[in-house]
């Protein structure tokens, strides 16, 4: 990782919403950060701090913002065999009328690749997320965790420069979530994508990411950047066993708790 090779640079990002009554609510003010190629960053913050807004902007779902977003690697701009960014959403985002394979395949419908390599990618990423036996199954025949794997495979199959994950495990039960963390760690090891992982779960951020961006309460901006003390080859469960994990957890929690408190105070005020 060299500092001269950023995959993404976000500078002075600002986002406001207009409420029904015409009031302006500022969701993000002055958020700046940059990502190295291949880096995995977690964006942590209290609810309503604008982390999902930030992700929607990066995903291209929201073009209504101020500030600059620079995509690194201009050479990739012409590469129509990869998406610039692919997103795994928080809720179930599989298309219920399509089989697992079709769900994964349709993610590539905007790419310029021939059907043979599309087939290869479908097989590769479906197997990678452990759904080999469910190629022809429909989402309503799968569990919530399996559906989220389909969504992950769909995003990975586009071999995106930037993989965006918006609390992808939040809708799952606690046990499935732990299993899926280990799964994500394993799956991530096989991609070279830069990853932005939005979460409110400190454990998850520490278990999976290289760097944590802690956001302030609304309007959100960067409060702190924290380097993970763990090297990439330490899997989530080993990280959790390390005493450093607990110390980091507390340190980060204090940062976040401060902001959560401010959010609650702000919400209590008229």
């Amino acid at each position: 990782m060299t500092a001269s090779n950023p995959a993404l640079r976000v500078a002075k990002l600002r986002k406001s919403y207009l409420t029904q009554t015409g009031d302006v609510v500022s969701a993000i003010t002055d958020l700046s950060f940059s990502l190295e190629r291949g880096e995995r960053i977690a964006i942590l913050g209290p609810s309503g701090c604008g982390k999902s807004s930030c992700l929607r902007i990066l995903a291209g779902l929201d073009r209504d913002f101020y500030g600059t977003i620079e995509w690194g690697g201009e050479g990739h701009k012409e590469d129509r065999t990869r998406l610039r960014s692919a997103t795994v959403f928080q809720g179930d985002s599989t298309l219920p009328w399509m089989s697992v394979d079709k769900n994964i395949g349709i993610g590539m419908s905007g790419l310029r690749i021939d059907s043979a390599s599309m087939r290869t990618r479908i097989d590769k990423y479906r197997d990678l997320v452990g759904l080999r036996d469910f190629a022809k199954a429909y989402p309503h025949e799968l569990s919530g965790g399996m559906r989220q794997r389909v969504a992950i495979a769909r995003a990975l199959a586009t071999e995106p420069l930037l993989l965006l994950m918006d609390e992808p495990l939040a809708a799952l039960d606690a046990q499935t979530r732990l299993v899926m963390q280990t799964e994500l760690y394993r799956i991530w090891a096989k991609t070279e994508s830069t990853i932005v992982y939005v979460t409110h779960d400190i454990d998850e951020a520490l278990s999976l990411c290289d760097r944590l961006l802690v956001m302030t309460a609304r309007p959100g901006r960067a409060k702190a950047f924290i380097e993970s003390p763990f090297s990439r080859d330490v899997p989530p469960l080993a990280r959790r066993r390390d005493p450093v994990f607990g110390r980091m957890q507390n340190q980060i929690w204090e940062l976040v708790a401060d902001e959560v408190g401010q959010t609650l105070i702000a919400e209590a005020a008229p």
Partner: peptide
Amino acid sequence: PIFRDVANAFRFP
């Protein structure tokens, strides 16, 4: 709306 988001995020034709 999630279906629209998927279509936009993956730049479906």
